[in-house]
Nucleic acid binder design. Structure first.
Lengths: 329, 329
DNA sequence: ATGAAAGCGCTAACAC
DNA sequence: GTGTTAGCGCTTTCAT
């Protein structure tokens, strides 16, 4: 070995071993033109023999671009977000970029920490599913030239944003229940401090209004999915109970199913096996893959130099009738 | 602004603006001892005002350690692997490390490419779910001081490895069916070129042997999950059809369920809602979170300097009876 | 076609 | 306590 001491061989080591200048090795490694084939071959042989691998940190330090992007989602283990993650990864791969991903756990402080960590690693851009609404901490990063895209929810900054049609989807879901004769429809959803939850609740109210049905606060419950079961049980044991339930997200839909009660049900978010339950679970489906892919494409367009005004894309949702939403009152 | 030209402010900029030496800024940024409180405060104010953020690439270049690890799994969107991913992330967070993750898609070439990309970024260590069995390309990386752990399957190198008890789990699952009176038990699994699939098939054969049942090749089918449904239908329409099925992985279990046939069924891998189907689906459960956490802990032990001989950990599986495995012949 | 020198932003080692 | 210097491994610029 010709390693200068410990650790990995460097371009310098390769150059010395091959008896050429460091710059020639650099040219070979980067596939730059202007190297005689014989020379290139000799250098490549040494690279192979020494197990040389370019030090990306040094390269980044010099060039300024890292060919990596940061992705902040709520939880990499959640099927919705892991689908989004995969889509982002695929688009990044096509653009020769790597993805750093992290879970914010719906905690704005953790989100901020992750984003700043990514920025310290000089990612070229960020895709963020905002946990909070205050993104002033991002200002200076944007000024420094980092591109950012918000996905799934709007953030507190005017940058490219990709959303799903939450209120429209909820409205369609509730209207579906109305169409099947229901007049007492419960809404069980996330805390409305979360954007998507608030939008879905708004869609619920709108559908009621359009059907000429009164809004009854005793039929509306918001909070963590863990409480959805007990809440439903309580509602059903009251007088004038609901005959149908609109569940504000996938976890709540499952929680409702676990209670064993079988009111008519439409859930926001599709999930695997929804079609295999009896009856099948009618859902309003989002498309996490398209969400991720769209956000990534938008980001790479910025990285390619697009300086147009920030875009706001809204993706449609799709009602999938499977049985549970078609039960009579 | 005192930025030296374009882009982000550097320590030099902060030092100039604060009227101190660069090293003092470095001390403040890194929380090193030996800085007068008043001085630290002044520097921090400038940092805040300029939006200074340490350049991690430069730091890495100088220090040699990146405080990041690479994770190569089959698919970040698969629930099994995304659970593993999350567990790795959590352990890494506790160790102040970041996770680079990528999907190999079961392609050895892509695995190699990902690993080498991670190495070029000088990750401190790697957790790999091997797609192939030839890991000679990793040799030089290990020699260079990068630590590696194989998870879920053994790789072609003697490094720390965390596996699940695949054959024992399959054996227990098949024995369960035998215990409920079945004598004609089909095995539908992945291609045996995949380690876990081969192990599970071995467990199946062992259980048959222990029950004194003959091995019947016409009851065994291996291949992609997409073919599991048609294969089962064919088996069931033959003469002397199986009365029970052991499904070799989660996707195949679901494929079997989708056929509408309802033989007695035990599946390898737990999945959400398995308990809500009718009958509930009896499974042999692995623990992806524990798998990921164990692999990560092993890796960080190495990074902390452990030079002991490579460990091989086998995690237990758990049979969860829910109804489908208890159906009579 | 090849090479020499400068310097990216930071930390380590050593003054003062 | 604070500052100076050297250099991590690479790309850039400019020479030859």
């Amino acid at each position: 070995m010709t390693d200068s001491g410990r650790g990995r061989p460097t371009m310098k080591d390769v150059a010395a071993e091959a008896g050429v200048a460091l710059k020639t090795v650099s040219r070979v490694v980067n596939g730059e033109a202007g190297v005689a084939p014989a020379m290139a071959e000799r250098v490549e042989a040494v690279i192979e023999r020494l197990g040389y691998r370019r030090n990306e940190s040094a390269r980044v330090l010099r060039r300024g671009r890292t060919a990596s992007i940061g992705l902040v989602i709520e939880d990499v283990a959640d099927p919705f977000y892991s689908g989004l993650n995969r889509a982002v990864e695929d688009v990044a791969l096509r653009h020769g970029s790597l993805v750093l991903s992290g879970s914010s756990g719906e905690d704005p402080r953790r989100e901020r920490e992750l984003v700043l960590t990514f920025c310290a690693r000089r990612v070229d851009g960020l895709i963020i599913v905002p946990a909070g609404s205050d993104h002033s901490y991002l200002r200076s990063e944007l000024d420094a030239g980092i591109a950012a895209v918000f996905a799934d929810r709007p953030g507190g900054l005017d940058v490219d944003t990709v959303l799903c049609d939450n209120s429209g989807g909820a409205r369609a879901g509730v209207a579906h229940l109305v169409g099947h004769g229901h007049r007492r429809i419960a809404f069980i959803g996330d805390d409305p401090s979360i954007y998507t939850a608030a939008e879905r609740l708004a869609g619920y109210r709108r559908a009621l209004g359009e059907a000429g049905l009164p809004y009854d606060g005793s039929l509306v419950a918001t909070g963590p999915a863990a409480q959805a079961g007990p809440v439903l049980t309580r509602m059903l044991s009251g007088d004038d109970p609901p005959t149908a339930v609109f569940a504000g997200n996938g976890r709540i839909t499952v929680a409702v199913l676990r209670t064993g009660h079988r009111p008519a049900l439409v859930g926001f978010d599709d999930f695997e096996l929804a079609d295999l339950l009896v009856p099948g679970v009618t859902v309003v489906a989002q498309d996490p893959v398209r969400l991720g892919a769209t956000a990534a494409e938008l980001l790479f367009r910025r990285l390619a130099g697009d300086r147009g005004t920030p875009e706001r894309v809204e993706l449609p949702t799709r009602l999938i009738p499977r049985g549970s939403g078609e039960l009579p009152p």
